[in-house]
Design a protein around this nucleic acid. Sequence first.
RNA 1: GCGCCGGUGGUCUAGUGGUAGGACAUGAGCUUCCCAAGCUCAUAGCCCGGGUUCAACUCCCGGCCGGCGCACCA
Length: 602
Amino acid sequence: MSDSERESDSEGRTLSELAKRRGFFFPSNGVYGGVAGFYTYGPEGAALKRHLEDAWRDRFTVKEGNQEIEAPTIMPEAVFEASGHLDGFDDMLVECADCGESHRADHLIEDNTGIEDAEALPIQEVEELIREHELVCPSCGAALAGEPVEEFNLMFETTIGPGSGQQGYMRPETAQGIFVEFPQLAEYARNQLPFGVTQIGPAYRNEISPRKGVIRVREFTQAELEQFVNPERDEPDLSRVSDVEVTLYPIENQREEGREYLTTTIGEAVEEGTIASEWVAYYLGIAQEWYERVGVDMDRFRFRQHLPGERAHYASDCWDAESELGGDWVEIAGFAYRGDYDLSKHADHADEEFTVFEQYDEPITTERATVDPDMSYLGPEFGGTAGEIADALETLAERDRAAFGGETVAVEVAGESHEIPIEKTGFSIEEVTESGEHVTPHVVEPSFGVGRTLYTLLAHAYREDEVDGEERSYLSLAPEMAPTTVGVFPLMDRDGLGERARRLASDLRESGLEVAYDDSGNIGRRYRRQDEVGTPFCVTVDYETAESETVTVRDRDSTAQVRVPITELSDVLAALRDGGRAFGSLVDEYEELSVGPENAPE
RNA sequence: GCGCCGGUGGUCUAGUGGUAGGACAUGAGCUUCCCAAGCUCAUAGCCCGGGUUCAACUCCCGGCCGGCGCACCA
């Protein structure tokens, strides 16, 4: 076992054990034997996920001035015919009868025959090609001719409506729900580019082999932004992020053995051309700051550029955000410049405009040669070909207005030349004023995996240390992310402390804090319980509370405690949660609690 | 999908051809004036199906689930 495997094993085991025991996540449907690739988020996990989504929404929807929508998860076949998922999401597998290895049939053909885009070919033809070219198994060399080519589509199929119904699919990405509604969405954006539409929700992929717990699952949550821009004009506000430092892993560095990552700023990376698209660069910068905010360890994080081979064919520049988990780098977000690929595809298939009308600053007036053929002449004269002749005249006028300079003009229809008197063509030079043009927007797509990000937060927050000689493990989650913000305990559940603490817990909940109340076991046990689920602060009602109307507030990471007046408590806790202040700043303002044998009251 | 390994309370684990023991956790109580202490009691388990056998948690076969490797990951 390599170091990284051992590391991965140990981190994965520790985390999945913690996740299950503490209610972050666990495999679904366990009582019926379970089914691979589906996970249930328990109480702690669901809260953490909600906070993560809220933070994403705050940054990528609200702060960017975008609009969030919620589209269905089941969509009809036509959507995926247009998007390319029906063909492109198909894998054609052929299995070697000799050694049992499965291979991508389309890749074998492309590699050995010079045929391109074999993916698009029907199954029978692929089987035929394997036979014709006498392709062999790359692993063992056995002939593959005659082996069946199996089609495997990563999309879940379903039937819409009763009976045979209509073929539908679970969406493999949330993005299509935005693209197909573009005409409506553009209308809501008052046809003003640029605008962005976000969506947070589940997507489905029938993975061949789900792995690594929540990292590769068949149902997962995406948070996606589709930023629609006018490629000729719209630019992001790079000044906003130009000083943001990022760790980049560009193509050149991946190709050369031993080359380190590139630590630079977004501004420099754009200037140097490391990041080709300014829009992609902008969102890398925004994302960098966001990942820091939610608690990703930036020493275990990088942006990696897609190699040309792994890039989708429509993406001109694509970067992944990757986090290091148990020694492996895992994709947690993708940032792609998708051009007009998606909207154009839907425009072709849907017989609908997927454009925005962009008004020019000044109307442009141009001269245009037009014809208005006299059909009462052309009809009797040319019979059935009259219509085609009229079309030919129009085409000719656009192409070569000089042809209309003589007495007659000659057009060719179906190989035959016809002479038309100029006065019957209705030829004229017109002034045409255009106030704008229809533009198919380009799409910049930051696409986040919520589950993978959540797992990263847990992995990067997990700590073990020692407190008073006792080992403890805790999650150093960002206060904003933590499932519970504050634990409230009575030091003893007697002498009225319990009642006072319960009342305090209730008051804090009313003020909008997420509170856990616990009076079971000794105080240390309760601290450890909260430590393990990442609760950043614990409040204890003790014997002094009744006298001074103060409680102790304990910091998870340092275990330090200060005594805070109850009247200020909810404000202080909210500020700690929202990042308005750090626990360290409380020490200056409030009395620090020191507890030990020498301080204990007699 | 293929190969290797595994599956015992919530978690971690011991063990056996005659249906199971521990630790932690959890609950009740005692104790305890700030960091998993102690004591008593309680709850709770052999992944599923078939086979062999008088008898299967144990042996065999299949499935499901998990880990790892291969393949796959638009």
